[in-house]
Write a protein that binds this DNA or RNA. Structure first.
Lengths: 194, 194
DNA sequence: ACATTTGCCTAAAGGCTATAGGCAACCTAG
DNA sequence: CTAGGTTGCCTATAGCCTTTAGGCAAATGT
């Protein structure tokens, strides 16, 4: 009987494709076995269980996004860098919704530590080098950027802005503008409304 | 044989409790049937299918959050109102993580239209009455608030800020400060870095 | 060529969803 | 208070997904 030539790598990659085509929830070992025309049990030679498949897709997505982000940030600073980083996440989510959904999985601490997660926060910090922020505000700002990017993309993908004016792309641009303005003019502690 | 006294209402409420205790993914008709000491098939008299259960938990969460938000906004404006609204979402997510997760479900358009979703955007708009924003910037700002709130809470719940300084609560406060400052000083279109 | 490893198989069990059909508990009328 | 109808929960069944155990054959290397 001819062998299918499965490897963990190939299975994970097919899982990522399936996620983008049919949604992350449709990523099952059964569906993947059908795709490779193989019996389900065979996949267990390459993956511990279905959880490992999901986790590996998440790690793949995090790596891919980090690679894109690193490329996008090269040679940019200030608002350009900010927009480039935001666009990386937003574009990736539109192009690979299933992978992006995978990347939102909660990873256990050691897996997270070994993931590209660190690279992502390093890149947000790199963007902030173009602004004048000292610790701990720099960290607060990193968290703000992460929140806005993941929040906006999540709502947009969830259809939150779908059927109302103005266009989501316009809000995105304006929000990047406003974040740029905020970072250039970061409030000192205790500055509040009168 | 004594009857269990099931109703759609009670089943959904139990589902919400189960979600908070065991995670939204653990909300299955099987688990709920065990909780009521009833056979699974019996639940189908009260729910069309398991999707309806999940959707109803999401709608319940959206209502509860909207009710809390309405109460929190009464008599507040400016930064107070902004922080009150943000705290509603953040506190609710900490107190009811399963329900909050349910509220992130993508609802089909008609269900979404009948949900408390509209109330939420109305309340964000109400907060913005304390700031000087005209359309379309008001809508952009509503979307920004939604993004920051849902993004921050999502990352925090996902453990993103768990094991690093500074404390997540401090970042939250500073981020509310910075949003307040941004809204008070919303950039005119085309204002960008030199 | 033979022995070993490896890849994919069959078989089987357990869990969740879903549908169909039945009986008994409850409600309502007369 | 009992006859009838309705409703609530039941059993039975089937399909799909995950996971483990154990077996045969294809690939590998000596």
């Amino acid at each position: 009987m001819a062998r299918a030539g499965l490897t963990t790598e190939r299975v994970v990659r097919a899982g990522a494709e399936l996620a983008d085509e049919a949604g992350f929830d449709a990523v099952t070992l059964s569906a993947l076995a059908r795709r490779f025309d193989v019996k389900v049990a065979s996949l267990y030679s390459h993956l511990k269980n279905s959880q490992e498949l999901r986790t590996r897709i998440a790690l793949l997505a995090l790596e891919e996004m980090a690679d894109r982000a690193a490329a996008a940030l090269a040679g940019r600073s200030g608002r350009d860098a900010l927009a480039a980083l935001g666009d990386v996440y937003r574009d990736y989510a539109h192009q690979h919704p299933g992978r992006y959904a995978a990347a939102q999985l909660r990873l256990d601490p050691e897996t997270a530590a070994a993931s590209a997660g660190r690279r992502h926060s390093e890149m947000a910090r790199a963007v902030l080098r173009g602004y004048d922020l000292a610790e701990p505000d720099r960290t607060h700002a990193v968290r703000l950027l992460g929140s806005v990017f993941s929040g906006y993309v999540g709502l947009e993908l969830g259809g939150g802005f779908a059927h109302s004016a103005p266009d989501s792309a316009q809000s995105w641009t304006r929000i990047l503008d406003s974040l740029d303005a905020l970072l250039r003019n970061w409030p000192a502690t205790e500055e509040r409304s009168p």
